[in-house]
Amino acid sequence: MASECRATELLLRILRKLKGSLSSDARSTAEDVLSQGPGAPVPFSVVRELHAALREKGSSVYLHELLEGSEIYLPVVELPERNPVLVARLEKIKAKLANEEYKRITKNVTSQTSRPGTLADIGREVRPLKKIIVTVFNFFVTVATAFACTYIGSQYVFAESAARVLSSVIVASLVGLAELYVLVRAMEGELGEL
């Protein structure tokens, strides 16, 4: 974190005037800064003491005016040399992770091409047919169940058998239409993915 700023002409001029009113540590730092001239790094602690001294003298110079035109001094950070043992371990771990990633990606890839007429081909052809058969069976079971539930439930409303059958057919038809609507929407989604 920055703890210094670069000295400007105004800061150096005020520092020359009020050098005697600073503490001994700040005074020695101020002398070093004055010997280096403009652009020398000035610690913020010296600037704060200088501002406090200005306030005691009754000056109307604010801290931001004192620092106007100066830049924050950021010392160059030297990075330590990397440990060669650590670098070797990191390279080994990276290679291991890359190898695991490669194996994960290529685990489904086989070098043998499937020959026509094998069991794998039959399985691929049967899957869509199986899905269609299950869907049709589900449709008929849903419609039959709706008919049966309505027929049994309508005995509390209708006394005649014809009215019960008619209401059951109507409800089963509505359930069948709703099921067909959902089935068509699902097929549209599947066809859109192709």
Rank of each mutant, 00 (worst) to 15 (best):
L90H: 03
K92I: 03
V87M: 08
V134P: 00
P128Q: 01
F137Y: 09
N138G: 10
T110G: 08
D121T: 00
V136G: 04
T106A: 07
N108R: 13
T113Q: 10
R104E: 15
V134F: 00
K96S: 14
L97R: 10
T113D: 06
N108A: 10
N83F: 03
R89G: 05
K96H: 11
P116R: 00
L90Y: 03
S111W: 15
N108F: 13
P128C: 03
G123W: 08
N83P: 04
Y102Q: 11
L90V: 06
L119G: 08
E101S: 12
R115Y: 09
Q112K: 12
I133A: 05
R115D: 04
N83T: 12
I133F: 06
A88M: 08
I133T: 08
N83H: 12
N108K: 13
R115V: 08
V109P: 08
K103R: 12
R89I: 07
N83S: 15
A98I: 06
T135I: 00
A98E: 15
A88H: 02
E101N: 14
T118P: 01
R104L: 15
S114V: 01
P116S: 02
N83D: 15
N83W: 02
V126T: 05
G123T: 07
K131M: 13
E91Y: 12
F137D: 06
I93L: 11
I93T: 01
L129N: 01
L129V: 09
I105K: 15
D121L: 04
G117M: 01
I132E: 07
V87A: 10
S114C: 07
K94M: 12
Q112P: 02
A95L: 07
I122V: 11
N99T: 13
S114E: 08
S114T: 05
P116A: 02
N99R: 12
K92Y: 06
L90I: 10
L129M: 08
V85M: 03
K130V: 12
E101T: 07
E100L: 15
T106D: 07
E125A: 03
N138T: 14
E91D: 08
L119P: 00
T110D: 15
T113E: 07
V85E: 14
R115S: 13
K92T: 06
N108D: 13
S111T: 02
G117F: 01
A88D: 14
S111V: 00
K131P: 01
I93W: 00
L97H: 08
K103T: 12
N83I: 09
V126Q: 04
P84W: 04
I132T: 11
A120C: 03
T118M: 09
S111P: 09
Q112I: 05
K96W: 08
P84Y: 01
F137M: 09
E100G: 09
L90W: 07
G117P: 00
T135P: 01
V87K: 03
I93A: 09
K130W: 14
R115H: 10
I122Y: 14
N108P: 05
I122L: 14
E101Q: 09
P116C: 04
L97S: 14
R124I: 00
S114F: 04
V136E: 03
L119H: 11
